[in-house]
């Protein structure tokens, strides 16, 4: 018997939250992927590089989490357990490099929820978009994520 999810949260906007990028977190993230570029890991090499410091890898904004707007919040909103989630799609658009020590503001919202039959049964697709801005109010990155809920 498929479960029901709470589709009333479609178009919900989560409270904006700020994140400060820690230098060590960039390095930990790059190493976890096994991407050993000195532009992520080596302060000295990066200092002489195009940005004058290390920058974050393209998928790093996935770490921009907040208790009020993270997977836990999504699960509560949808009324489902974490074991039912799969990551369906993910996109990052980058407009400015993400740098250590900077504080960014994230605005996340649910842009769509739809259901359709999957190979292994009914599925719900939850689409979220998060916009990351810097202290100049410039858009630094936009993330779009489709989460699949196995119903």
């Amino acid at each position: 018997m498929p479960i029901q999810i709470n589709t009333a949260v479609k178009s919900k906007e989560y409270p904006p939250y700020s994140v400060t990028v820690e230098r060590g977190k960039i390095k930990e993230f790059a190493r976890a992927i096994g991407d050993l570029s000195p532009f992520y890991l080596d302060d000295e090499v990066a200092k002489a590089g195009p940005w004058g410091d290390i920058i974050a890898p393209p998928t790093f904004p996935i770490t921009f989490r907040d208790e009020q707007a993270d997977t836990g919040a999504l699960l509560r909103d949808l009324g489902v357990e974490i074991g039912r989630l799969l990551h369906g799609e993910q996109e990052f658009e980058h407009f400015k490099p993400i740098r250590p020590g900077r504080t960014y503001l994230c605005r996340r919202r649910i842009t769509d929820i739809y259901e359709k039959a999957g190979k292994s049964g009914p599925m719900a697709f939850v689409v979220q978009e998060a916009t990351v801005t810097d202290s100049d109010n410039d858009i630094v990155a936009v993330m779009r994520q489709t989460t699949v809920v196995r119903l």
């Binding site: 992927i33 096994g34 991407d35 570029s37 195009p50 940005w51 393209p58 993910q90 990052f92 980058h94």
Partner: peptide, 21 residues
């Protein structure tokens, strides 16, 4: 992350304007 690395290893860190999978 691996896929993004494959692009930056080839075209350079900082070259990715958009990536979607």
């Amino acid at each position: 992350g691996f896929v993004a690395q494959s692009v930056t290893d080839w075209l350079g860190v900082g070259s990715v304007r958009k990536i979607g999978v």
